[in-house]
Design a protein around this nucleic acid. Sequence first.
DNA 1: ATAGAACGTTCGTTAAAAGGAACGGTTGAA
DNA 2: TTCAACCGTTCCTTTTAACGAACGTTCTAT
Lengths: 176, 176
Amino acid sequence: MDTLSLGTLGQHLQALRLERGWSLSQLAAAAGIAKSNLSRLEQGNGNPTLDTIWRLAVQLGVPFGTLVAPISVPLGEHGVEVRLIDQGKESPQVDAYWMRCAPHTLRHAEPHTPGARESLTLISGRLEAGPESDLSELRPGDSLTFAADRPHLYRTHDAWATLLLTIVYTDEGDAP
Amino acid sequence: MDTLSLGTLGQHLQALRLERGWSLSQLAAAAGIAKSNLSRLEQGNGNPTLDTIWRLAVQLGVPFGTLVAPISVPLGEHGVEVRLIDQGKESPQVDAYWMRCAPHTLRHAEPHTPGARESLTLISGRLEAGPESDLSELRPGDSLTFAADRPHLYRTHDAWATLLLTIVYTDEGDAP
DNA sequence: ATAGAACGTTCGTTAAAAGGAACGGTTGAA
DNA sequence: TTCAACCGTTCCTTTTAACGAACGTTCTAT
């Protein structure tokens, strides 16, 4: 079972704050919480209230789950963070993921079920991806769709990459 | 500024619990929290701790943000639920949204900035969408990209529609 | 050098979230 | 009918998150 890491939240909190060049006092004031509270949270102690997390997420402009969900490399590979966004229950089945790859990461993906297709849309950074024999270079805003029933990969170079990924599994029952 | 709705969380909690056919006592015991606590939360009172939310999300098997982020119709239209997933900070800027439309909903969208493009990927249901003069019918797994600097719309008929939506804003500084 | 302002931390107080034991209501079996 | 088991709610108590003030530090300006 997955367990809550209080320390990670603190690290994320501090990282996001520093990215924006804000002081702890500034962020606390903007969010309307006591700076002692924020200080404790960044140190990894404590167990913030939903209201507190919410106020911080709003100020930092992050979609909330980002603060708390450093979840976490389902296949045990380093440098890749994947989050399930939604899962269609209809036919054909569609899985939607948010994915983030650290610089200089190479991730090999096993073939999915026959006929499966993947679509990527790059949100930020750079990414090289696709079937192993036919890679494409993506820039922010670019999309790519390819057959995912063959080995394929994702590779970053100097930059992080953040993207949306959808996997469409073939609709076995509908074939004419 | 966006504000926290404590009541909505309670409704979601209860809905998810009932979907699984669990009693309040069962869920509370499984999550390791007092049932008085869960009862109060479902009633929409109180301000749960991160630990509490976490335990419930794990038991319910939902990606966490799902519990807390039923956010909510930025343009005040009925039947449309939109959630910001991620926002690129680079050039060109990319916004990624998750969106859900109730049956028999028609949503008109104002033109975005010149050159902006939208991409949709349908996760479940049916959706008719695109520029007003050139609509397309999408089925689960289908993707559609179109120029978003003209009026466009999203329309559902008998079914719900769940989709990913990305908006790519033109990179003004890069034009040759 | 010195006063001032801002930083992040620490500590005692206060407000409130979580726990635990009752309660009335409903169901089902003896 | 009665008893037992479970439901969800409502108290009261305990725990603790959030607050506010004070603290030592660092940096800048006078």
